[in-house]
Nucleic acid binder design. Structure first.
Lengths: 353, 353
DNA sequence: GATAGCGATGATAGCGGTTACATTTACTCG
DNA sequence: CGAGTAAATGTAACCGCTATCATCGCTATC
């Protein structure tokens, strides 16, 4: 921002652009100007300690002078590895994954890595395709969401040299490394919390049933625990399509209309819970006295709501940072495969329960 | 999802992995098996119409048999272009850009493009660095957010052959192509809307002042119009750091404490506005009678609020789709540079104003 | 003083494709 | 029936950088 002014515009006409003028300098050009071989230039750039200070200086000057930028593809091809990290997430819109993405980027951008991002849309076939095309770039590592994969994907993942990280979930036998938390336990924790707060009858508002199997795992934990601690099976409504506040409000209204005895509702995430909270207000159900509402995610507005939204805080950012950390070591060749990192979660009690 | 079961796990021990077994097949292997030259294989893969059906069939069989995957880096190096689209956004967390990203991906993934994503953190130096490293990948196109760039960035952008798209803003002289809308006019529209609704004194809750210059443009439009239609300069509070609901609530409270006469507040975005809405509820200001609140973005919860949050709907998704469309043509070599696409915005009137 | 050892640098063969150009084959036509 | 032409395929020179191995001084060692 500071100091950098907006420069003048106007790109030369298409016909005149590009190769027309000065071609992009190659390493050979740098070598010639510095009076050394390309091998030395290459070394000076990647392992400076192997090159004498004087030569290093000359090369630096030449690089500067030509404003040389190494062609990453050539380098990647020659060394059979690229400074790229493939990341596959099931949705780009979901703020959870965005935060994790940002954290991964933060932890790795400094080391010169670029993120290659793929969106699986919660579909295993998509994931498989993405895995294949990402591996075709010989990324330094591949980060994928979840621990369940199609057979083909599994084969590709087991067959490659590329370090693999599975995130946002745990498993007993990771392909390589897993960083996440137990989705199921979230449901367990919330059910217990409701019990503790004296709820009589539980309800659940879900979304993406049978598509987002992580959400299903939370649901399963909630239902099983509910029953094991003496509740009858929670009343349930699944919203069609993506979880939004508007749909959440509607689904919640439907749930309460069908089961007026419900006095504690777990929503599959905070966005849905927010919709439920507003709907409760509209319908005149007092929260938390008559009705308790809990979300999942601890999105920033959860703390700003009135009453504050109780929710489950997920290690969205921690996952990303941990992945970056693991990857740095994994790429450097230390650290064996097989690590499973449970980053846990935290039930955040606010006014809505 | 359907049909693909979870496969068995356990990657072979590190020592045994990778090259140890079968190396990844190369195009030469395919050529040998199919009984043709690599040139023909290459052609069969990228311009099938140039290869006879029989040969094409043999090659397809060989590819299938070896489950051959072309090495994208080799191809990219040789052809000096990669099937990659670089996208630079100022924040990954901001849901606006995520939607646009998703739309770009949607419109281009089918054609086999991969997104290389960079996060500039609203910093021009970062942007410049990202531009340089992305161009080093010879992407098929580069999409950047905004029309203001550092001098160095500008030089790099003007100097390259790669199609450039500037998004989320308009300009009279785009580097190549611009897809967005007028940020300033949003401020204008909201000021007029407040006037129309009978507001007496305006207020503004901003964030990222002097960092997010697009937000500043909206603010400028709001302030200038306010005065030109007879208001005194709006009362203003800028929140420190990223715009969140919690901070929004706090800043709003501060604003109202300092200027109790304010009866219409524009918040820099919906998240902040949501915080303000809740805070107003807590403080007992009735919305919209005593106080009108307007956000920007039309995030999904805006429609679910009570009262519904008036806001400005941005063409987040349309921008992405348009970019994909433009890029497809631009890459194909049709379509000249210099296009500016104004996708507009829409003031959405709900209960809060 | 010859030899080994080491640090610094150069020569060069790839990495795995793409593509301009050459070559072959199959037809069309005067 | 031979030339002319278009379609199909092969040949081989790169693309720009990395990495292996050879080379060349020089100093440390006995």
């Amino acid at each position: 921002m500071n100091g950098s002014k907006e420069a003048e515009r106007t790109k030369p006409a298409p016909a005149l652009r590009g190769r027309s003028g000065t071609a992009r300098p190659r390493m050979a050009d740098v070598a010639r100007i510095a009076g050394v071989s390309t091998a030395t230039v290459s070394r000076a750039l990647r392992q400076p300690e192997l090159v004498s200070p004087e030569v290093r200086g000359k090369i630096a000057a030449a690089v500067e002078h030509l404003s040389y930028r190494p062609n990453l593809m050539a380098g990647a091809l020659a060394s059979a590895r690229s400074k790229t990290i493939g990341v596959i997430i099931p949705s780009m819109i979901n703020a959870f994954f965005s935060v994790t993405l940002e954290a991964i980027e933060e932890g790795l951008a400094g080391a010169g890595y670029q993120l290659l991002i793929g969106n699986s849309h919660y579909e295993m076939e998509s994931e498989e395709r993405l895995i294949a095309s990402m591996l075709a770039w010989s990324p330094a590592a591949l980060v994928i969401t979840g621990c369940r994969h199609s057979r083909g994907a599994m084969r590709a993942l087991l067959d490659t040299d590329v370090p693999i990280v599975e995130m946002w979930e745990l498993t007993d036998n990771p392909i390589d490394t897993a960083v996440g938390f137990s989705q199921r336990d979230i449901g367990v924790a919330v059910a217990r919390h409701f019990k503790e707060r004296g709820a009589r009858r539980l309800g659940f508002v879900g979304a993406m049933h049978q598509r987002d199997y992580r959400a299903d795992a939370r649901r399963a934990g909630f239902f099983e625990t509910a029953q094991s601690i003496g509740y009858e099976p929670p009343a349930e409504v699944q919203l069609p399509g993506l979880p939004t506040s508007v749909r959440g409000a509607k689904a919640f209204a439907e749930l309460m209309a069908g089961h007026p005895d419900v006095d504690a509702v777990l929503c599959t995430n905070d966005v849905v819970a927010l919709g439920a909270l507003f709907e409760a207000q509209r319908l005149g159900w007092s929260v938390p006295d008559r009705l308790k509402i809990c979300g999942v995610g601890d999105v920033d507005f959860a703390a700003a709501c009135e009453p504050g939204l109780s929710t489950v805080s997920l290690p969205r950012r921690a996952i990303g940072l941990k992945i970056a950390e693991v990857l740095r070591e994994r790429i450097a060749g230390h650290l064996p495969t097989g690590g499973v990192h449970d980053l846990g979660f935290e039930l955040v009690r606010r006014g809505s329960t």
